[in-house]
Design a protein around this nucleic acid. Sequence first.
DNA 1: CATAATCCCTAACAATTGTTAGGCAAATAT
DNA 2: ATATTTGCCTAACAATTGTTAGGGATTATG
Lengths: 201, 201
Amino acid sequence: MPEQSNRKQQILQTAAHLFRQRGYQAASMRDIANAMQIEAASLYHHIKSKEEILESICFEMAARFITGIHEVNDIYFNAEEKLRTAIRNHVTLITQNQARSAVFLYEWRSLPEASLEKFKEMRNDYEEGFRQIVKQGIEEDIFNEVETKFAVLSILSSVNWINEWYSVEGKMSAEEIAQNISNFVMGGLRKRMVTDPDYKP
Amino acid sequence: MPEQSNRKQQILQTAAHLFRQRGYQAASMRDIANAMQIEAASLYHHIKSKEEILESICFEMAARFITGIHEVNDIYFNAEEKLRTAIRNHVTLITQNQARSAVFLYEWRSLPEASLEKFKEMRNDYEEGFRQIVKQGIEEDIFNEVETKFAVLSILSSVNWINEWYSVEGKMSAEEIAQNISNFVMGGLRKRMVTDPDYKP
DNA sequence: CATAATCCCTAACAATTGTTAGGCAAATAT
DNA sequence: ATATTTGCCTAACAATTGTTAGGGATTATG
């Protein structure tokens, strides 16, 4: 009795692509079914409703993001290293699950009110993980004094933008992107100056 | 014979709020009409179609953003000052037209294919304005060597995120926000170090 | 006052939406 | 071999969608 059939995951994947492409509201059940070469009614043997699809995707991704940031906050010590690792995790998660990430990032607004609240809590959990890192950096006197919440939102928005233009065939690898963003962000935070652009911590 | 009746602007404003709140697809003509205490059919004496509403909002805002960046690129000389002014213009435009800006930023995906292409061109124009500034900064040896396109997208995503959390009643003014973001971004770009967090250019 | 324009209404349309009911066929388990 | 589960089908539903037709007021213009 597997928790999730293989077929359900196929539906989630197909739906994620369509939700990303056209938005949750604009992508119909018939669109999803059509992409799977199936009739719309057949979907309902694997899922309860369209909203359940959205919820599954959003909460699964939220859980993965949160797991990542918790691991970072538990293991690494130095704030800069923590931040760089957290960003790398984030970029990796996005580039390796572009469709589902897009849904997590932009389509959660369509969640039913019941789940919406819980989702926002989880997203706040994730942001809180970053806020802790920035605070730690300030306490360690490595980062400039900044409005923590403000800095975190700036960082996350930068990282999330990847989803708009990253493509697997592009010339930048996920690793390179993560490093670029990290450098950029660290420039905005770190106290010590870096004149050498090739500087690596 | 005014190009745009007053009533049409009211429709655009109401629609913008609903498009922002629920998304373009989810907000129906009856929702818009209802918010105006009017019947849905009555809207069609002022606008041609729902898509025309979206187009009006998107292109009007695009024009305003572009005007802003062109003015900056024509008048100011120093790259840092240009960038700070461009960011301030952007923040001002967003905070003073939050609903319409949200539509411009996030709902343009629903534009019909015909307008979509032109819209993307305009958005690219706007980004190109920022790219010029960053390039100028590198040439002037004020900015670090960075992937220009990359830096610009990072900057814009940071600035655009404002729309998610800015509220008129909040404690930060548009001016303060612009300064905060500018400082943060400049930290990531500028060659010279700033140890004093209260530093002003 | 007459004429035109502006603004909104009711009623209805065709299409599309998410979803359910009930059934057929193949694979799996007993 | 029988029973059960799994996966998909056709057909249809009620609701909602954007939009049009045609008409009745109220306001501005001559």
